[in-house]
């Protein structure tokens, strides 16, 4: 699994978390990760109810594990206007990694890559470098490289 330029959304302008997750769900439908943007959106929201996926320093990692996901996918969205999200440091969110996984048979390699991405978000160097990149090609290549199964 590699991220492509289509998985990277830059200069996103949304009013709030729900509008962003709707936008990401719609994109996921266009990209073939799901047949139902509406149900994917609901799955994201359901997961947020367990506890928020907001992290710190402007990052959030919403995820949906549902049968409405056909192919494992990641969408990265960078926002022009920070949005409210429950986070560890009470700061608004500007950088969002949305993970989409089918309920069963996601594949160990894919899950490992998502795991690698999640743990990269603990690293200051990853966050800093990511924010220095400003085009879809560089960003998708950088994230793909960092998710590589060897990175663990």
């Amino acid at each position: 699994m590699e991220l492509s330029e289509k998985d990277i959304l830059l200069h996103v302008k949304v009013a709030d978390r729900d509008e962003l997750l709707r936008l990401i769900s719609k994109r996921a439908e266009e990209l073939g990760n799901t047949n139902s943007a509406e149900n994917l959106f609901k799955a994201f929201i359901e997961r947020e109810k367990d506890y928020s996926t907001g992290l710190q320093e402007g990052f959030a990692i919403p995820h949906a594990k549902t049968n409405f996901v056909k192919n494992v996918g990641i969408i990265y969205a960078r926002l022009d206007i920070p949005i409210d999200w429950e986070t560890y440091d009470d700061q608004p969110v500007t950088d969002v990694f949305a993970l989409m996984v089918p309920e069963a048979n996601a594949g160990t390699t894919h899950l490992q890559m998502l795991s690698n991405l999640a743990t990269e978000l603990l690293e200051d160097s990853f966050k800093q470098h990511l924010r220095e990149l400003d085009n879809q090609k560089d960003i998708s290549e950088y994230i793909s490289k960092k998710m590589g199964v060897d990175v663990l």
């Binding site: 367990d50 996926t53 594990k65 993970l99 996984v101 899950l111 999640a118 743990t119 978000l121 603990l122």
Partner: peptide, 17 residues
Amino acid sequence: CPAGLAHTPMAAKALEK
């Protein structure tokens, strides 16, 4: 964690580090 995707490895790595 609930989905077993992100917070599980993040917490493990954070604690080990």
